[in-house]
Write a protein that binds this DNA or RNA. Structure first.
Length: 628
RNA sequence: GCCGGAGUAGCUCAGCUGGCAGAGCAACCGCCUUGUAAGCGGUAGGUCACGGGUUCGAGUCCCGUCUCCGGCUCCA
């Protein structure tokens, strides 16, 4: 048999030769340093036989930043972690331990609870295993053999994993530890030069909150200590961009125990909010949306009709007044349906694009709250489009266009996901076929790449989700475009068709900025607080040099403000250096020191992210700000 | 909600095995009168999250509650 190397040369090998055999045939150094072999671009274990004619490429310890190589390194480290934990905590049961984006974890069922203080001895034990030396061997056995083996070892989680594993059963053994595992793994532990156990967490077995809660140990590993140091330094840097920290530093908002999960917006934060709100309103107007305003609280009856009382009640704030039961709205849709049902509509009226950025309250689980990114009170750039089935695709495309007008303006990197029919769906397969096709078609027309999340759709219809990441790489949903066949039926919504028959409209739920809270939070993390000038709470700050310059600074202030610039004057009796520093700390984009040397024809403008001081006339500055 | 950690001045934090509650910044009052990232001095500021317990004595140890942080679940 033969395989093809990256340079196009062919390599002759004995039948059944493994990746390691191929590496040895190329050179002993390669064989020693090889971490995994890519077979036709798919990562594979070195110990496995190569298919005849495959294109192969080796990744070695020198590919220390390659995600596939790091994956293998971390996967093997996870196995070492399990061995170390078993040594220190006899009686522990092991569950599952995969590599993840920036490291790995392993889930354990400890006989007695452990705490953070237990991590260090475990890490030392893990280092000890590496020092002792470990090599991995791979065995394939039958399902029954595997079950018998793990049952004998008293590892019920492993037995369950064997039951649900797909394909052949393989085991990897290092030292005194054997794990059910698909691989690939390192040849030995030598490449693991840097390990750190980072945290402890609870995690439900199989991700199911009705099942046992296990103890998850997170860690990370690298091919060099320097890479680990860089990684930790980067995390520390990211911490500085945490929007909760920036919110306080920039005086934008704060949280209080008096109302967990609901931000207090400060004046400066409210400026940012209102600029976004202006954008929302003007874009809506330009795109044929109409603004409405619907109640905050509704009789229980509305929520029963919409289905929320049954499906969502524990996440709603409810209360009684005069013996009626009310619910505070967690979303605008039922209110918009109620508004729609007040009229009699013709197909000529559709599409109706109904927008409202109303306050919403959701009783999120206390443990899920996360700064501005997960709150109990928020407002979305929400809209509901009442459309005919024929209009769905065009309207979805219009929503995507709308969204990308905003995202592109901010230079945001959006990840698109299409979520399709779940198991507990309502409606027929034919309806879902049409709806999913309409969404896919709109995405194709917009030229967007997307990931399909099969089965992740809402029970009432498929959806397009638009995600962004925070400074630590955690993903958050920003926008969403959802089709809904159910709500219009539940509310008995109709329009008169051209055929003089009543039809049921389709509802498109749509939010593009998503919640203003989350959007501002993510923007802060992405910009490190340096919001684009058009969003900055204060765009220009004037610093009069001495007391004698205050009058003219005030006059300049008024002229800039009249030109629509958000401008402030720092009249404090502090040094110039001090006042500049404070403006920089607040990330004010432009600072102008004004004294005897200056005039409105020649202002010294110190601009964020730009070396030195520019000299600009007042008019030039105003027109520069106007183009943003 | 669940697992682990944390909560000390407005903010960031120190306070060891229990023994008089601290620093820097901010605030306030003076001095200085400023030219591109922190001028100098002084003053004031605390129910050590809240409630209970152990102890001669609790910020420190124990129990409960709340909130926050990291995860898990959830995000209709």
């Amino acid at each position: 048999m033969k395989v093809i190397l990256p340079d196009g040369k062919e390599l002759e090998l004995a039948d059944g030769a493994s990746g390691l055999d191929a590496a040895r045939a190329i050179g002993p150094k390669l064989a020693e340093q090889a971490v995994l072999v890519k077979v036709n671009d798919e990562p594979a274990d070195l110990r496995l036989p190569l298919p005849d004619g495959a294109r192969i490429r080796f990744l070695t310890t020198r590919d220390r930043e390659d995600p596939d190589a790091l994956y293998v390194l971390r996967h093997s480290t996870a196995h070492l972690l399990a061995e170390a934990v078993r040594r220190l905590h006899p009686g522990v049961k092991v569950a599952i331990g995969p590599p993840i984006e920036n490291g790995f974890y392993y889930d354990f069922d400890f006989p007695a609870a452990i705490t953070d203080a237990d991590l260090e001895p475990i890490e030392q034990e893990l280092q000890q295993l590496i020092a002792e030396g470990r090599t991995w061997s791979r065995d394939e056995i039958t399902r029954d053999e595997a079950k018998a083996r793990f049952a004998a070892e008293g590892e019920p989680y492993k037995v369950e994993l064997v039951d649900t594993a797909e394909g052949g059963i393989s085991l990897y053994t290092q030292g005194a530890f054997t794990d059910l595992c698909r691989g690939p793994h390192l040849q030995d532990a030598k490449p693991i030069k840097a390990v750190k156990l980072t945290s402890l967490a609870g995690a439900y077995w199989r991700g199911d909150s009705t099942k046992a809660q296990l103890t998850r140990i997170y860690g990370t590993a690298f091919f060099t200590q320097a890479d680990l140091d860089t990684h930790l330094a980067r995390l520390e840097e990211a911490r500085k961009n945490d929007h909760r920290r920036l919110g306080r530093q920039l005086d934008l908002f704060h949280f209080s125990e008096l109302s967990p999960g609901s931000p207090f917006w400060h004046p400066r934060g409210m400026v940012v909010w209102n600029v976004l709100e202006d954008l929302r309103r003007s874009e809506n107007a330009a795109r044929g949306y109409v603004e409405v305003r619907t109640p905050q609280i509704y009789d229980k009856e509305l929520w029963v009709t919409s289905g929320h009382w049954e499906k969502y009640r524990e996440h709603m704030f409810t209360f009684q007044a005069e013996e009626r039961e009310y619910g505070l709205k967690p979303m605008n849709c039922p209110g918009h349906c109620a508004l729609y049902s007040d009229g009699a509509w013709s197909y000529r009226d559709l599409p109706i694009r109904m927008a409202e950025a109303g306050n919403l309250h959701r009783n999120e689980l206390s443990g899920a709250l996360h700064g501005l990114l997960r709150v109990r009170m928020f407002a979305q750039d929400d809209a509901h489009l009442f459309v005919t089935p024929e209009q769905v695709e065009d309207e979805v495309l219009g929503c995507l266009d709308f969204g990308y007008a905003i995202y592109d303006r901010l230079g945001l990197d959006i990840k698109v996901e299409l979520s399709t029919r779940p198991e507990n769906k309502l409606g027929t397969d034919e309806e879902w076929d049409r709806a999913e096709a309409a969404l896919a078609q709109a995405l194709a027309r917009k030229g967007l790449e997307y990931q399909v999340n099969a089965g992740d759709g809402a029970f009432y219809g498929p959806k397009i989700d638009l995600h962004m990441r925070d400074s630590l790489g955690r993903g958050w949903q920003i926008g969403t475009v959802q089709l809904d066949f159910q709500l219009p039926q539940r509310f008995g919504l109709t329009y008169q068709g051209a055929d003089n028959v009543e039809h049921t409209p389709v509802v498109i739920h749509r939010a593009l900025i998503g919640s203003f809270e989350r959007f501002i939070g993510i923007l802060l993390e992405h910009t490190g607080g340096e919001l684009p000038v058009w969003l900055a709470p204060e765009q220009v700050r004037l610093v009069p040099v001495g007391e004698g310059h205050r009058g003219i600074a005030a006059a300049l202030h008024d002229r800039l403000a009249a030109a629509g610039v958000r401008v402030g004057v720092d009249q404090r009796d502090e040094t110039i250096g001090r006042r500049i520093r404070d403006a920089e700390m607040l990330r004010v984009p432009h600072v102008i020191v004004y004294g005897d040397r200056d005039s409105e024809d020649a202002l010294p403008v110190r601009s964020r992210g730009r070396e030195g001081v520019r000299t600009l006339s007042l008019d030039a500055l105003v027109s520069e700000l106007a183009t943003l």
